[in-house]
Every structure is written in structure tokens, then in C-alpha cells.
Design a protein around this nucleic acid. Structure first.
Length: 557
RNA sequence: GGCCCUAUCGUCUAACGGCUAGGACGAGAGCUUUUCAAGCUCUAAACCAGGGUUCGAUUCCCUGUAGGGUCACCA
């Protein structure tokens, strides 16, 4: 005997518990008909507004989006799960919406007022949950439970003492034993209560379930009378998930694999309602190395867990997306190499190729992916991105880039657009370091800290260097092509006792003050204050003869 | 602890039961008409352990070990 209550009593109970629920479940079923989408997948992303957006959330959203949109009529929607009134944070709602907008996932419903299967925020669906819970009570699948937290605690302690499985199940589910009279009395006395599932399952029954990522998994039947409606009237995740995904016609539930263990409960709930069950795909979490062990990327401990980190650092969204795609399906990289110009949305993502266990987040790899993406961008694209990024994050750089647009674009265009790709910029945060010296104010600042003697060949004095620089300023001709320019530079080197080429120098270093490479390095350092810069010839060309001349002569006081 | 899941270079991973276990990032060495980057060449680097099935096991099965998840009126 599962419950002492008769069907009639359950029916009465439903009315007593939910007297105000007028809209029957049939009305809701009629309101949300099957979608006319030719069997296309319907997926969703369901974050809770409890803090900053997590990179793992973007990962789940990305995969859900790509799987749905592999089909022309596929639907991917956003649903906000704010049933925990204690943990919710008002700002988090906007954080979710803006993250969805800035990472280019295509959200069809649940954002910007789109979609006709809403509301897409759970706190606005309370009447729906009440109607369906009423139905569950009426069917004898749920009951009110008046057990206090203290009583539940006591039950658990007894179970622990007896080395039994903890939980509210079977004979331990004392709320099941309440008579109809007890229940009505408690209600009339306004005792607080929750609504629990009246589970018909047994932990002795196991069966196989095919998860689209994990493959075949063993599920043990649920036998816990889990809470469906909390005492504050809000549903738990479990009830809300089942009702919403049924009503919104979800065909594939993609979620973190921490949910695998509650799959039996969800299966029982779908069965209790008599509904078909969606497919499930449980995603392994993104991990972080922590000492010897590894753990989930944590919002509190790891700055890179928050999506805002990538936006603030100035990673192009495509870089983050492609890195994540690569974690999802490792054959993304070869695909990208073979399809250089296709948007990554064309990549055929496969759930069954996803890893069953969590991957360690690798910032180095992200940087590499990002450098390749930035390297493929045109100077104009880089310019635009930096302008937008720097506006709120580096106003000095923003002003610098705004001052002389033509010059700045020329700077960014060095060694770009040809067959080679520069890989010195991976994120907009790198730009200041990479090209700042092109701007006179930044150069002046850097020069004041520069000790030109540090990289000199031992054979030359600082004064001789300064003289060389000054003299070269007089002979530099900005109109020469690269080959001729370098020929002239070699002659210049030779005229001052330096070897014209490296081999000659290496053959007998004692014969020279240095090689043409040393002259080039001296020029580079004087012009840029850096030892690592793009091609010197192009750099000088972009700087222009006046600037080059001024900088080279600037070392003589 | 119970239950579930996972296990290949440092990292992400590939390999119908069958060649010297492949690639990428990272590390190291080298090449080049100037530095760095890029590019090219090369090097080091892995099948968790033990049984079984099999002509043959990284792959299938069992056990162990390790790691992860979960056991809430949180999601």
C-alpha cells in the first residue's frame, strides 16, 4: 500500500490545496501545442540568476545552440530558473542576457520578448506549476507533507545510525501515513507544508538509459518522495524542469552532468504525468588544476571562470567560442584548418564525440587559438575591435587610437593581410604593449626608462651609437623597397666597421665591431625602445621619415 | 560510506581487436638577407595496475587503484 488515501480523497485534497487554480492542465496543453518544426531539435539553456555568468554556462549554451541549429528549423531558447528566492541576485538577470548577446549564440526565444511558449522566467510561471501540481495530487502522485526540518533531521540521524540510505522514502516517508483528517486539520491550522512526490519506484529496480554524451548508463529507479513545491510556494528544480520542458516542447535536454544522479526522479515525474521523455545529454564540467587534484572552475577562486574575464581581457568572442568548440569536439581544429574562411557556426558538432569526463581549462591554448583568429583579421577589424574594447577599459589607448586613425590603421596593417600572419596580439589587452611605441607620447615615456647601453655590442661605446643613429637619420630614405633598403643598410654597416652579413661576421668576429644585425637592432631599439617588433623596414615606413629622423636624432642631447 | 560516471604524452585528444600509439598547445634544439612573431626541420613526452577472453588487447570482461559527480524545502 503506497498511501492510505483513496482516489476520492486525493481528488478532494487537490481542491483543498489549490482552490484558486481554475485553469486546468488541458488548457495549458492547448495553449502550447506541438511545434511545427519537422522534427528539428529544441534545446534550451537554463541558468539561475545567482551570480556572474560562468564560462561553463557559455559552453552549455554554445553546444545547445549549435545542436539545435544544425537543423534549419531547430529552436534554442533561454529559460531563467529563479525558483530559489533566497539566492537570486537582481543584477544577474541582465548579466545572463548580455552574455547571450555578446557571445554569438543564436537565441530564438526567451530574450528580447521573443517566443510564444513563455513566460521564460520561472518566477512568472507559478500558476502553471500550481495547476500541474494540483493535477499530480489529483492523480495520487503527490501529497502535502508537514514534516519540519527538525523531524527530517531526526529521520536522517536514525538512518545513519542504522547505516541505511538517508532520505525521505518508503516507510521513512512519514508524511505518507497522514490520514485525510490529519491533513485537512493541519491545513486548516495553517501549518506550513511542502508538496512531495508520492514515489512508486524501488531502488531495487535498475535499467539502462542512453545518454547522448555518456552513452549507456545505469539508472536506479527513484524511490524518494522528493519535494516538488517548497513551503514558499515555489517549485523545486525537478518539478519546474519537467513541467517546463514538457510545455516548451524541448526535445533535448543538455545540462551539466551533476544532474545525472537526479535523472531517475525526472523520469518518474514524466511518467507520473504520462508524458514522453526528452532526450538527455549530460555535459562534463570544465575543470581547473588545483594542487594535485582538479576541481570545477570556481566563480569564487578563478577569475577565468567568469565570462566577464574574457570580455575584459579583450579576447575576441570567436576565440572563446572556437576554443570551447575544440574542447567539445577535438576534430574542430583540423576542420578549422581545412575551412579557414567558414564561420565556426558551420562546424558540424557531434554530441557523441564529446568527452565523458571533464577537461582542464587551458589558457595557453586559448591564447594560441585567439592569436590565430586575430592574425587572420584585417587591420580594420582589429582597429574596430580595439576601439570598442578600449572605450571603457583603457581610455588612454582609446584616445591614442582616435587621434590619428589613418596612422593607427597603418600601424596595425604591418605584416598583416599577406600570406604570413602576425601572432603577437591574442587579446585587445595586448595591443598597448604591442604597438604603443608607435605613438609619440608613449614612446617618450618608454624612452625615458630606456638604457640604450644594455643591448650594445661590447665593441662600441654609447657615444658612438648615438652618433651612428644620428648619422643614419641623415641617410634614411623612406622610398626604397625592402631589398634596396637592406642593401643600403649593409653598406652603412660596412662603412662603420660592421660586417655586411651574418656569415661573414660569424666566420671571424674579431675583424668587426659587430654585424649588420647589430645595426638593425640598434635602430630598432632607438625607434621603438623594444627588442621585439615587427619588420623594421615596414615599421620605419609607417612611422614616416620625419618621425624616424626625430627619434634617431633624439639621443644626442 | 551508498549509488553513478571516468581513466592515452604536462594539457586537449586520435587510433574497425592488428603496422615504429597520431595530431594540437606547451617545452627544448636548429634553420632564415636585421629582432621578435610567423614559417620550416628536429627532440623529449602517454596507453593507471593486475588478472581474464583472444593468434593478437590501449581497445572487450572482471578486480583493484585513482579522480569526478551525487546523496537539500540549491540549482
Amino acid at each position: 500500500m503506497i498511501s492510505d488515501l483513496t482516489p476520492t480523497q486525493f481528488n478532494d485534497l487537490a481542491e483543498i490545496l489549490f482552490p484558486d487554480v481554475k485553469e486546468g492542465v488541458d488548457a495549458y496543453e492547448a495553449k502550447f501545442p506541438e511545434r511545427n518544426i519537422d522534427g528539428a531539435p529544441v534545446t534550451r539553456f537554463c541558468p539561475s540568476p545567482t551570480g556572474v555568468m560562468h564560462i561553463g554556462g557559455v559552453f552549455a549554451a554554445l553546444i545547445s545552440d549549435r545542436i539545435a541549429h544544425a537543423h534549419p528549423k531547430g529552436v534554442f531558447y533561454l529559460r531563467i530558473e529563479d525558483t530559489d528566492q533566497g539566492r537570486k541576485i537582481e543584477e544577474a538577470y541582465d548579466g545572463i542576457y548580455s552574455a547571450m548577446r555578446s557571445f554569438d549564440v543564436q537565441v530564438n526565444e526567451g530574450i528580447d520578448g521573443k517566443g510564444s511558449y513563455g513566460p521564460y522566467v520561472q518566477s512568472e510561471r507559478l500558476d502553471i506549476y500550481r495547476a500541474f501540481t494540483k493535477e499530480l495530487v489529483r492523480l495520487g502522485h503527490a501529497y502535502p507533507c508537514f514534516s519540519t526540518p527538525e523531524e527530517l533531521d531526526e529521520i536522517r540521524k536514525k538512518q545513519e545510525a542504522l547505516k541505511l540510505r538517508p532520505g525521505y522514502y518508503g516507510t521513512w516517508a512519514v508524511g505518507r501515513k497522514n490520514s485525510f483528517a490529519d491533513i485537512t486539520k493541519n491545513i486548516s491550522e495553517k501549518k506550513p507544508y511542502v508538496i512531495r512526490l508520492l514515489s512508486r519506484g524501488s531502488d531495487k529496480n535498475q535499467r539502462k538509459y542512453n545518454d547522448l554524451i555518456k552513452g549507456e548508463i545505469t539508472v536506479t529507479e527513484n524511490d524518494q518522495d522528493s519535494v516538488l513545491i517548497k513551503s514558499d510556494g515555489f517549485p523545486t528544480y525537478h518539478l519546474a524542469h519537467v513541467v517546463d520542458d514538457h510545455l516548451m516542447k524541448t526535445t533535448l535536454v543538455l545540462r551539466g552532468d551533476e544532474w545525472v544522479s537526479s535523472l531517475p526522479l525526472h523520469l518518474e515525474l514524466f511518467a507520473a504525468f504520462g508524458w514522453s521523455v526528452p532526450s538527455y545529454a549530460h555535459i562534463a564540467p570544465i575543470l581547473k588544476q588545483d594542487g594535485v587534484g582538479r576541481r570545477k572552475l570556481s566563480k569564487r577562486k578563478d577569475p577565468e571562470a567568469a565570462v566577464s574575464y574574457y570580455v575584459d581581457q579583450g579576447y575576441p568572442t570567436d576565440a572563446v567560442i572556437e576554443y570551447l568548440l575544440n574542447i567539445a569536439n577535438s576534430d574542430f581544429e583540423p576542420w578549422r584548418a581545412a575551412n579557414l574562411i567558414l564561420p565556426n557556426s558551420k562546424f558540424p558538432l557531434r554530441l557523441e564525440k564529446m568527452s565523458k569526463s571533464g577537461a582542464l581549462f587551458d589558457l595557453k591554448k586559448l591564447d594560441d587559438v585567439s592569436k590565430n583568429i586575430v592574425g587572420r583579421m584585417s587591420a580594420d577589424e582589429v582597429y574596430q575591435h580595439v576601439r570598442v574594447w578600449s572605450q571603457t577599459r583603457d581610455t588612454e589607448l582609446h584616445d591614442l587610437f582616435g587621434k590619428d586613425e589613418v596612422y593607427t590603421r597603418a600601424v596595425l596593417n604591418i605584416e598583416r593581410g599577406g600570406t604570413t600572419t602576425r601572432k603577437d596580439i591574442g587579446k585587445w589587452n595586448d595591443v598597448r604593449e604591442a604597438v604603443g611605441y608607435f605613438f609619440d607620447d608613449v614612446y617618450a615615456d618608454l624612452k625615458s626608462k630606456l638604457d640604450i647601453a644594455t643591448t650594445l655590442p661590447a665593441s662600441v661605446t654609447v657615444e658612438q651609437c648615438k652618433a651612428l643613429l644620428s648619422e643614419y637619420a641623415g641617410v634614411y630614405d623612406a622610398n626604397l623597397d625592402k631589398v634596396t633598403w637592406f642593401e643600403k643598410l649593409k653598406e652603412f654597416a660596412g662603412a662603420h666597421g660592421f660586417a655586411k652579413d651574418t656569415k661573414e661576421f660569424k666566420a671571424d668576429p674579431s675583424k668587426f665591431k659587430g654585424s649588420v644585425g647589430d645595426i638593425a637592432m640598434l635602430l630598432r631599439l632607438a625607434l621603438t625602445t623594444k627588442t621585439k617588433t615587427p619588420d623594421l623596414h615596414e615599421t620605419m615606413k609607417v612611422m614616416g621619415v620625419d618621425r624616424v629622423s626625430a627619434r634617431l636624432k633624439g639621443f644626442i642631447a
